[in-house]
Simulated scan of single mutants.
Amino acid sequence: MAVTDPAPLFEARDLVKHFRSRGSTVRAVDGVSFTIPRGRTVGLVGESGSGKSTVARLALRLLEPTSGELSFDGVDLRGAGRGELRALRRRMQIVFQDPFGSLNPRMRVLDAVGEPLSVHGLARGRARRDRVVELLERVGLSAKDLTKFAHQFSGGQAQRIGIARALATDPDLIVCDEAVSALDVSVQAQVLNLLKRLQAELGLSYLFIAHDLNVVRYMSDEVCVMYLGRIVERGDGDALFADPRHPYSEMLVSAVPEFDPANTGRARPAPRGEAPSPSRPPSGCRFHPRCPRAFDRCSTDEPVVHPVAPGRTAACHLLEVDR
Rank of each mutant, 00 (worst) to 15 (best):
A7N: 12
L15T: 06
V16T: 10
V16P: 09
F19G: 11
F19A: 08
S21K: 12
S24W: 01
R27K: 13
T35R: 14
I36P: 02
R38T: 12
V42K: 00
K52C: 13
T54V: 15
T54W: 12
R57P: 07
L58V: 07
L60F: 10
L62C: 08
S67T: 04
G68F: 02
G68N: 03
E69V: 01
S71A: 15
F72G: 06
D76F: 05
A80V: 08
E84W: 02
E84I: 00
Q93Y: 07
I94V: 15
D98I: 00
G101A: 11
M107E: 10
V109I: 14
V109Y: 07
L110D: 11
A112M: 05
G114D: 13
E115M: 06
A127H: 13
V133K: 04
L141K: 05
L141I: 10
L146C: 00
Q152E: 15
F153E: 09
F153S: 09
G156W: 08
Q159R: 02
I161K: 05
A166M: 08
D172T: 02
A179P: 08
D184H: 06
D184Y: 10
V187R: 05
Q188Y: 13
L195A: 04
A200L: 15
E201L: 00
L207M: 08
A210C: 07
D212T: 02
L213M: 09
N214Q: 14
R217I: 01
Y218Q: 12
S220C: 13
E222N: 01
E222M: 02
L228N: 10
R230Q: 15
R234L: 03
G235F: 00
G235T: 01
D236L: 02
L240G: 09
F241W: 07
A242P: 09
R245D: 01
H246Q: 06
S249P: 09
S249Q: 05
E250P: 01
L252E: 11
P257R: 10
R268N: 08
R268M: 13
P269T: 13
P269K: 13
E274T: 13
S277Y: 05
S279F: 08
P281A: 02
G284R: 01
R286E: 00
R286H: 14
P292D: 11
R293W: 03
V304A: 13
V304P: 00
V308I: 15
T313A: 14
C316D: 03
C316F: 10
V321P: 00
D322M: 09
